[in-house]
Amino acid sequence: MWRELLPVGRHPDSHGYRRFAWTPADADCRGWFEEQAVARGLRHEVDRNGNQWAWAGDPALGDAVVTGSHLDSVPDGGAFDGPLGVVSSFAALDELLRRGVPLDRPLGIVNFGDEEGARFGLACVGSRLTAGRLSPEDAHRLTDGDGVTLPRAMEAAGHDPGSIGADPERLARIGAFVELHVEQGRALDLSGDAVGIASAIWPHGRWRFDFRGEANHAGTTRLADRRDPMLPYAETVLAARRAALLHRAVATFGKIAVEPNGVNAVPSLVRGWLDSRAAEQDDLDAVVGEIQDTARSYAEAHGVALDVTRESFTPVVEFDHALRDEIGRILGRDTDLTVPVLGTGAGHDAGILSGSVPTAMLFVRNPTGVSHSPAESAAEDDCVAGVLALADVLEGLIRA
């Protein structure tokens, strides 16, 4: 399975993945998912929000155990973020069948659409819509960098956008959702463990900073006469680093758009996107507040206007304690693994669903800690350990 999926959406120059929502690469990933479902005799379906499901048993019976993740990527992302969870889900099902485990509860595997938000700027669109965390009206306003709206992109890919929205009936059938994911950090590598259990997802969000100045000629405009928005933007990037260090948080300006974007032109607009996360809400509020205050001071000093827009926000997610403890008992009883519990600064579909169904996460060791990059990796032995741990968890939950 892994070898079949590896070439899909891989860029020949960067060797990273560009599997963006509702593109041909995304369609190829979806086709791969359906092939895996059909090959196992599973019932394959696409819900109103474009998420794919593969079912062993009838989900209408309720109390289903579901696993899975996503197949899309960030720009030039790695091979493991998302796909490891989907591939491992099919492999874990194979392991359950090999063991002869009776599926006394419906078992589902899901591929959530547009988890990374690389194309339309909002993460976890598929799961947000399903959980009612994103309204159809707001979803219809999402636009990519080429001005293509989400509905247009869905239509072009053969999906009807007219039916998107909350799907409480589907979620009500799920008794537990467990997502396996490559760790996006080095906690497991430092502890020497192959697999871990998630405790919580840090609060996090995205903010857009629009610095508006005055376009002018780069060669003839005196420095003293300029209203250059690039200057306060650059100073804000450095201020974000200082604020994050002070409050034990992370803050990243990783995306920028410039107008008119000419080498010999003073910009009229510099638009930068801030991603910030922290273990505690108070720390996140403090770091983002300081960044905004500092940005306004710099903008004023350079005669530049500033607008700040919060584009998305997810509060702290504490995974279901009872489910987390049960998974710990299953793995502690049935395996020789040491399975630490650790928090994460990365958002996931499991976090979005946590307000609607009991959710949990397993992490697989990432030896470099690198993520959202072609250097992202996991050893085969650790991936196998993750599959077996997921199979043990699913078996334990099905028999519970």
Score class of each variant (00 low, 15 high):
G162P: 07
R141N: 03
I109E: 05
M361V: 01
E300D: 12
P203A: 10
P168L: 12
A166Y: 00
R277W: 02
R30M: 03
P374V: 00
V125M: 14
G62A: 01
A56H: 15
D325H: 14
V287M: 05
T294M: 06
A56G: 08
L97N: 02
A176F: 08
L84K: 13
R271E: 14
R98T: 10
A224Q: 10
G262I: 02
P102W: 06
G100I: 11
L5M: 12
W2R: 11
G369V: 00
P59C: 03
A200K: 05
R98A: 15
A37V: 08
L306N: 06
P232K: 03
R3S: 15
W202H: 14
E300T: 10
G126H: 07
V178M: 08
A200G: 00
V74H: 01
V364R: 05
R30I: 01
F177G: 02
R206M: 04
L323A: 05
L397R: 05
L353E: 08
C383D: 00
S312D: 14
G262A: 14
L61C: 07
A385T: 09
G132L: 04
T309N: 11
P340V: 11
I352A: 09
G162W: 07
F363E: 02
E311V: 13
A251F: 11
R310Q: 15
H15G: 02
V66T: 05
D228N: 15
R208S: 14
V74M: 01
G158T: 02
G78S: 05
T359S: 02
L96P: 06
T294A: 14
S312V: 03
L362K: 04
V339W: 14
A64Q: 06
H15C: 07
L323I: 08
H372V: 00
G254H: 08
V357M: 09
T143F: 02
A299M: 07
R133S: 11
D320K: 00
L103S: 10
A234F: 12
A153E: 07
L188I: 04
L246V: 04
Q292I: 15
A176P: 03
P24C: 10
F177L: 08
D76T: 01
E34G: 08
L84N: 09
A187Y: 03
A166L: 01
P83T: 11
A166E: 05
D293N: 07
P136H: 11
V339D: 05
W202E: 03
V66P: 02
L97R: 15
A54T: 08
A249V: 03
I174M: 04
G62D: 04
V341F: 01
L93Y: 14
R227P: 03
G396K: 14
F90V: 04
G85T: 04
R324C: 11
F80S: 06
D382F: 04
I197K: 03
R152I: 02
F363H: 07
S354E: 06
E326G: 03
